[in-house]
């Protein structure tokens, strides 16, 4: 299952996590974000145990979105040991995202 990160939980659940973490920056009014939501869910299931996969609603968690300079959604950031190691802006293929996460497992 994918997680739902917030400004309050970001430090503990993303930055302090030792496994790679995929964060999907999204909002309910973003059409492309909604179209890729099923892909993110599938990735969460398929990489269960290997990586953490979650979403961050930019509308409710502006602080984190601003902190990473997100100005376009969907943006996908992959974190490892508290640092951004991969970045995708816009819709990408599932395998491309999965491969990028697996590089850091």
């Amino acid at each position: 299952m994918e997680k739902h990160f917030t400004d309050a939980t970001f430090d503990a659940e993303v930055l302090k996590e030792t496994k790679p973490v995929l964060v999907d920056f999204w909002a309910s009014w973003c059409g492309p974000c909604r179209m890729i939501a099923p892909t993110i869910e599938e990735i969460a299931k398929e990489l269960d145990g290997k990586a953490i996969v979650g979403k961050l609603n930019v509308d409710e968690n502006m602080q984190t979105a601003n902190g990473y300079g997100v100005q376009s959604i969907p943006t996908l950031l992959i974190f490892k040991n508290g640092k951004v190691v991969e970045q995708f802006i816009g819709v990408k293929e599932k395998d491309e995202i999965k491969e990028a996460i697996l590089k850091h497992v």
Binding site: A27, W29, C30, G31, P32, C33, V58, D59, A65, V70, Q71, S72, I73, P74, G90
Partner: peptide
Amino acid sequence: SACATCDGFFF
């Protein structure tokens, strides 16, 4: 941006 409806919010 290529999507005003997606990204207008950030401005």
